[in-house]
Nucleic acid binder design. Structure first.
Lengths: 337, 337
DNA sequence: CTGAAAGCGCTAACAC
DNA sequence: GTGTTAGCGCTTTCAG
């Protein structure tokens, strides 16, 4: 591999001159520059990125760390972060935290291969974040509330979301409402559940233990849990699934047993993933402000990178998007007559 | 930022000893090692990744380059590449080629910030690929046929796909079949179109110019073009959309005009994106073997990285997945009686 | 305008 | 086992 040294030699100039010429410094004579460029081309010279980063001790790159690069949910988020990065003249790389402590993500953080990071990955411990972040290595954590030096957090108001979802069901006359939760250790899930409880209590409704089930935030979990619920006989009139994936699985289960959504059972989800609007019936759900949060995360990161003051935690509002998977009980009974 | 030098000094050992201790070389005494580790912890020492890469002149990382990180189509591909990378002990970063020559992607390639790359991004020119690839910087290009030193390619048999799709329609008795194409400069599109033509000619059918329209591979394009077609009056009995996105837009247009898919018009797509199975009616389409191609790309890259021989181009088969958007003309006419 | 030289932080011979 | 040292390839003073 040709180095700048080779280029300089071939062009018959000093290394520094070659460097200047290559990086377009204006003080090299046009003729010299041309010579260098020619030599570079001839040698198929490629500058070595690390050497440069090492010297500059800056990478001009930020990382977006996700649990699973292949998850389809993040598209909007990724896009907005990307836009912000681009408009700040920074590069963005995405990497996965699969593999926990050994993952690419953790390596990137620990070894400072980037100038800062946005992390949306629950399998990275708070400890790692706290240890890695510092004023010259800012991190924006999403969906968790850890803060510290150089570490700020953005969360979405899941409690409010849970409340809104449940309230929507109650407002439509539902009294028996099941909650299908995600993993027990999930902070998001807990918030959504708390919102659910608040709405239920406020309306003087009771949560039935047998209608609180866990589907682990995955489609198949929602499916299985719903099947189980149906086998037990007594059914709720509405189900609040902790996320859309589970709701999609749930709807499938419901329809397989020849019940109809929303005629027999109303369903509401959470997230508003892309699929939500395409399934049948289109899913009423709580929309996560992906675009806003990505964009906010990006901006905050750059503010920190530029040593500007930022708050250390942000909470984003959430909204209900009404589609066709919830029907009011009055309407349902009317149509039965 | 503490460097290894600081650690060594605090621990009272030489730099090399510190380095050995930190990287777990077995020849340092347990006690020394402990001292070093303790010092490192105290200083909150983080090793500098570039310095290491520079020294080692290897990064243990490969890049997956996509046009748009936020595209949802690639999930399966990303996952399979990720699996292969992980199981080879390599890290994977994904980056976007948005921004063309100035993009992160091109920078990563030119500056060799990784050991090799898989690129699925049409806005990166063949030239860049050819220039950057070399025996010690292998690149696997997907969806294009450029090859060169250290550069191999994987394509999916689009011609066959186009043929199969069209043939499926013909086998269902359709004679007037429209083709909605993607961008004119798209290689994929061309292949699919050729397959379409081959099937048409083989069946002695004629392509009508007015039924060959371009929807630019986007949903809205499919929608508009279909609307236009419908306004012109005479309708085909089936439409082959160059990709699923356009088909989804097209179906919307068709239904807005109170026609039904597949009762009035049969529709077939290409790609088998996740949505395809969820829309109404579920879309019959040609499945791209995303998982297989990702996995193949990964394996080939590692073979090249390990200086093993590989072919320089691979072509993957494609299969039809039959769902509900195509109906045979006999069935249709029967139901009209 | 050009050249010599000092490192950036780390690894890996090599010598003790 | 541990210390010394020579770079990896580049940028960037500082002299000339």
């Amino acid at each position: 591999m040709a180095t700048i040294k080779d280029v300089a030699k071939l062009a018959g100039v000093a290394i520094s001159t070659a460097s200047y010429a290559l990086s377009g410094d204006r003080r090299v004579a046009a003729k010299t520059k041309e010579k260098v460029l020619e030599a570079a081309k001839q040698l198929n010279y490629r500058k070595n990125g690390f050497a440069m980063d090492l010297k500059r001790s800056r990478t001009n790159t930020i990382a977006l760390i996700l649990t699973d690069l292949s998850g389809p949910y993040y598209s909007e988020l990724i896009r907005s972060v990307q836009d912000v990065a681009l408009s700040n003249g920074y590069d963005l790389v995405a990497c996965s935290s699969m593999g926990g402590k050994e993952s690419t993500a953790v390596k990137f953080l620990r070894e400072k291969r980037v100038d800062g990071a946005i992390v949306l990955a629950h399998n990275i411990t708070d400890e790692v974040l706290l240890q890695t972040a510092s004023s010259n290595f800012p991190i924006v954590a999403m969906d968790r509330v850890t803060t510290g030096e150089g570490l700020i957090s953005i969360v979405v108001d899941g409690e409010l979301g849970g409340y809104k979802a449940t309230r929507h069901l109650i407002d439509h006359g539902h009294q028996s409402i099941a909650f299908v939760s995600g993993p027990a250790n999930s902070y998001d899930n807990m918030l959504r559940y708390q919102g659910y409880l608040r709405a239920m209590h406020e309306a003087g409704l009771e949560e039935k233990a047998k209608w609180r089930l866990s589907g682990n935030f995955v489609r198949d979990g929602g499916y299985k849990v719903t099947k189980m619920m149906m086998m037990q006989g007594e059914l709720p009139s509405a189900i609040f699934y902790g996320n859309d994936e589970m709701a999609i699985g749930g709807i499938k289960a419901i329809e397989e047993e020849s019940y109809s959504v929303p005629d027999d059972i109303s369903v509401i989800g959470f997230d508003d993933i892309q699929l939500a609007e395409y399934i049948n019936p289109p899913l009423t759900t709580i929309r996560q402000p992906m675009h806003e949060s990505g964009s906010l995360a990006g901006h905050l990161l750059f503010q920190m990178l530029n040593d500007q003051e930022v708050n250390d935690s942000y909470k984003l509002k959430v909204e209900l998007v009404e589609r066709k998977s919830v029907k009011s009980v009055e309407e349902v009974s009317k149509s039965l007559i």
